[in-house]
Design a protein around this nucleic acid. Structure first.
Lengths: 241, 241
DNA sequence: TTTTACTTGTGTATATTAGACACAATAATA
DNA sequence: TATTATTGTGTCTAATATACACAAGTAAAA
């Protein structure tokens, strides 16, 4: 249909391609936290005139000498002070008009942090934890990014035990269940939940009670990162549409 | 640790950010096909001096007025003549030194095409179908991109019935099984495979035999895109690590 | 033509997992 | 003290995964 284009492929022909180097690249981090049994996301108030009073994700332009993962870690560290956080690339958003400042392609990451971490108690005042369920609109295309990342998170927690990144080191089974329910948006049967979790071998009893930790009811457990039986993989030979 | 950076966040402060607009953005398409019971990928010979005689994925720089999806469709159409192909964004690769021509961030897509489609019979002579299993090295970071996309494909075909995009309109169960085996790299039990496929409701008998289609043994079926029982979703409330 | 090799089509029995379901004891609150 | 909410615990049933054998048909080779 369309006549074949004359512009050579950059992978194949060393020609002048300087006019293509007009993009900016950014990262946007969907930082999830769990507090008061609600899944929350850390947002910042936009002061771009275009998005007056809208909230936006934490993000930044990528420097010419850093890659996307590094840029995301940098954003996380600069904004929250946290290091060694769980971070995962999800999708790259590239609508032509998505940013008023020009052609900015943005790669979305989601991040899981412990919202009660001491470094997060006093946040910079333009930062705020929002319950994910309450968010109706955001600046830029950030609502779409948030929805995409939430879907990715919902899927991922069913495949790998990354969810503990959202909890304190020690937690009760009830907390864990509430967290699953908050992320997945479903109610789970408590007894079946317990049964399933224990068969994974992921949970380890914690005997000692801490002194200075606020008391929460229930037996406390901690995650056993190393050995867990990858149950889904065992039934993975099949073709489960 | 690191002192907080002074550069304002682009999402929040309308400042001069022109020095960030020095990136090029590209797409690379991992075009999968199935022929002679082998999973293949369509490659092009690189003639960049840096990658003399290495094969590379089909890709192109993204124009300043198009988004990534459009760019991928364009590459597919220009290179293969095919439209309405299955295309899915997988990951964005951004190592600082990944492209000799400058700072090029590339978003990888995988694509599923019918390798026996008539438009593909006579390919431009720099294009070639390579068995995925035989590929040892490629230009740029394309080996990593290929591996990432293969893993994404393996996962995806267990979740959604996209696999028919690799087959002719009519196919035998045996062909379908070989295709699954080729992608997943496993052997499947023929009887269990049949049972499972039929319970999905995805397959429809094809009674009439075509005249001008080369004869392949076995009963022919066609895919029933509309209704299929999403079996995995039924057991989705659980937490399957 | 006969033989051989390969492919197709079909069913059952077992093990694993998912999911539904109730009640007594304890802790917190009014 | 009464009330309310939360915790801990086990069994039964249904669905699914998986292992497994043989007879008939087709194509190729002798």
């Amino acid at each position: 249909m369309t006549p074949s284009r004359k512009k050579p492929n950059i992978n194949c022909s060393p020609v002048d391609t300087s006019h293509f180097f007009g993009f900016a690249v950014s990262v946007d981090c969907v930082i999830f936290g769990f507090d008061e049994n609600v899944l929350k996301v850390l947002l910042i108030k936009s002061d771009l005139p275009t998005f007056q009073d809208k909230w936006s994700l934490l993000g930044d332009l990528v420097e010419l000498d850093e890659d996307l993962d590094s840029a995301s870690y940098r954003v996380l560290k600069d904004r929250t002070g946290l290091e060694n956080v769980y971070l995962e690339q999800v999708h790259t958003f590239s609508s032509v008009g998505r940013h008023p400042a020009g052609r900015v392609v943005s790669t979305a990451y989601f991040s899981l942090v412990n919202a009660r971490h001491h470094q997060l108690r006093q946040l910079a005042n333009e930062l705020h934890w929002h319950p994910v369920a309450d968010i109706q609109e955001m600046a830029f295309d950030h609502m779409e990014i948030l929805n995409t990342c939430l879907a990715a998170l919902q899927k991922k927690i069913q495949e790998e035990p990354i969810i503990f990144n959202l909890l304190e080191n020690k937690f009760s089974l009830r907390e864990l269940q509430y967290l699953y329910e908050a992320i997945l948006g479903v109610k789970l049967d408590r007894r079946n939940f317990r049964k399933k979790l224990f068969t994974t071998g992921l949970l380890v009893d914690v005997d000692e009670m801490e002194e200075n930790v606020p008391h929460r009811p229930g037996k406390l457990y901690t995650f056993n990162h190393g050995r867990y039986s990858n149950m889904k993989k065992k039934t993975f030979v099949g073709i489960d549409f």
